[in-house]
Computed example of a mutant assay.
Amino acid sequence: MAPMDLRIFTEPQQGASYDDQLALAQRAEQLGFSAFFRSDHFLHMGDGDPLPGPTDSWTTLAGLARETSTIRLGTLVSSATFRHPGLLAIQVAQVDAMSGGRVELGLGAGWFEAEHEAYGIPFPHKRFGLLEEQLEIVTGLWSTPVGERFDFTGKHYTLTDSPALPKPVQDPVPIIVGGGGPKRTPRLAARFAGEYNQSFPEKSIVVEQVNRVRAACEEAGRDPDSLTYSVAFVACVGKDEAELARRAAAIGRVPAELREHGLAGTPAELVDGLGALAEQGISRVYLQCLDIRDLDHLDLIADTAMASS
Rank of each mutant, 00 (worst) to 15 (best):
L6D: 00
F9K: 00
P12D: 05
P12N: 09
P12Q: 07
A16T: 07
S17K: 09
A23N: 06
A35N: 05
R38D: 05
H41F: 10
F42Q: 02
H44P: 03
H44D: 13
H44I: 11
M45G: 15
D47K: 14
D47P: 07
D49W: 14
P50I: 08
G53H: 14
G53D: 11
D56P: 04
L73V: 10
L73A: 02
G74V: 02
G74C: 05
V77E: 02
S79H: 07
R83K: 11
P85E: 03
L88V: 04
A89E: 00
Q91V: 08
V92H: 00
V92K: 00
Q94T: 11
Q94R: 07
D96F: 06
D96C: 08
D96V: 06
M98A: 11
G101L: 05
R102K: 08
E104W: 04
L105V: 06
G108V: 01
G108C: 04
F112I: 05
E115L: 03
H116V: 11
H116G: 12
G120Q: 08
F123G: 00
P124S: 10
K126F: 02
L130E: 00
L131M: 11
E136G: 10
I137D: 00
I137M: 02
T139F: 05
T144Y: 08
T144F: 07
V146R: 07
G147W: 04
E148Q: 10
R149P: 14
F150C: 03
D151H: 12
D151M: 10
T153M: 09
G154Y: 04
H156D: 06
L159R: 05
T160A: 08
A164K: 00
V169C: 06
Q170K: 13
I176W: 06
V177M: 03
G179T: 03
G179C: 06
G181V: 06
T185Y: 03
P186T: 05
P186W: 01
L188T: 02
R191D: 09
F200Q: 15
F200K: 11
F200V: 15
V206Q: 02
R214P: 00
E218G: 13
E219T: 11
E219D: 14
R222S: 06
D223L: 12
T228P: 04
S230H: 04
F233E: 00
V234W: 05
V234Y: 05
A235S: 14
C236T: 08
V237C: 13
K239D: 13
L244W: 01
A245T: 12
R247W: 02
R247C: 02
R247D: 02
A248Q: 01
A248C: 12
A249V: 08
A250G: 10
G252C: 07
G252S: 08
V254F: 11
P255A: 11
P255W: 06
E257R: 14
R259P: 04
R259A: 12
E260F: 09
T266W: 09
E269C: 10
E269K: 10
E269Q: 15
I282T: 03
S283C: 06
S283H: 12
R284M: 13
Y286H: 11
D291R: 07
R293N: 11
R293V: 10
T304K: 07
T304D: 12
T304L: 08
A305R: 00
A307T: 09
S308A: 14
S309W: 15
S309I: 15
